[in-house]
């Protein structure tokens, strides 16, 4: 048997927005069914890294391979949950219609097939939203919206799942539930997730990538308070919302 193709390979990548460098000399290899947590300060380039993997942005230098292909070609096999922000809060769209967007690539003209609808409903059920399909996306809670967007990514049934700060708007219970779901999904697909919550990250993820202009990867077992301080440039308060953190002792971050 040959060695399996890595899900994501990045070699010598630089990226700049109109001349101002954002990412520098990134080298990354992610194996199938790995789970990678991406952390780093705001503006560090986490979203940019995901968009490069999706083929929405072109590197200034270097090479990206996703599932053995160029990112633009592979994007149909990648599930994506965008950073919760850029949605028009008044847009009249139902939850089911949002999830069906994950099946757009299979649609030629007219209505979706019954198969597409079933896949969308199954994805909603997997995220515990089965009874919300007729509700307006604008009317459900922030956490439910976040789960709807994850269901949309699941309905697309890719082999790689990218999530950009999916825990930013949800409470601790919803977050716990999300990680349960991700754990299950991780048995059949590769997961990359951006978060500020290093506490949860260490519990679930196999490796952790610190993105701050440069990208450094550590196995989660190497995670120490020192390391966390380094990746946030010393400002440890940014990740204070680790719920399992001892009073005042927020440097230990629930590490083993």
């Amino acid at each position: 048997m040959t060695a399996p193709v890595p899900v994501v390979t990045i070699r010598g990548l630089d990226f700049a927005y109109n001349g101002s460098p954002i990412l520098r000399n990134v080298n990354l290899e992610i194996a199938a069914r790995d789970s990678l947590c991406i952390v780093g300060p705001n503006g560090g380039g986490k979203t940019t890294l995901l968009k490069l993997i999706l083929g929405l942005l072109q590197p200034t230098r270097g090479e990206i391979r996703v599932l053995g292909e160029r990112p633009e070609k592979a994007s149909l096999r990648v599930g994506y949950v965008p950073q919760y922000a850029h949605y028009d809060p008044l847009f009249p769209v139902t939850v089911l219609d949002v999830v069906l967007m994950g099946r757009l690539d299979r649609l030629a003209i007219g209505p979706y097939t019954r198969q597409d609808r079933e896949a969308a409903r199954a994805a909603l059920a997997e995220m515990g939203l089965a009874d919300l399909e007729r509700r307006l996306f604008a009317e459900i809670s922030g956490g439910q919206r976040q789960r709807t967007l994850i269901a949309r990514a699941l309905a697309a049934s890719g082999e790689l799942l990218l999530l950009d700060e999916p825990t930013a708007n949800i409470d601790a219970a919803a977050e716990e539930h999300l990680f349960e779901v991700l754990k299950k999904l991780n048995q059949r697909l590769t997961v990359m997730l951006v978060t500020h919550d290093v506490g949860f990250a260490s519990k679930f993820f196999k490796s952790i990538a610190c993105v701050n202009r440069e990208v450094v990867i550590h196995p989660t077992s190497e995670l120490t308070g020192e390391l966390i301080r380094n990746m946030y440039g010393g400002d440890i308060r940014m990740i204070r919302h680790d719920h399992r953190c001892a009073e005042g002792g927020h440097c230990s971050h629930g590490l083993p």
Partner: peptide, 18 residues
């Protein structure tokens, strides 16, 4: 209908779905 809906609601995601 569905293509136009997706382009209006979430242009970037629609592009990713081809």
């Amino acid at each position: 209908y569905h293509q136009l809906l997706a382009v209006c609601f979430d242009e970037e995601y629609a592009r990713l779905r081809g």
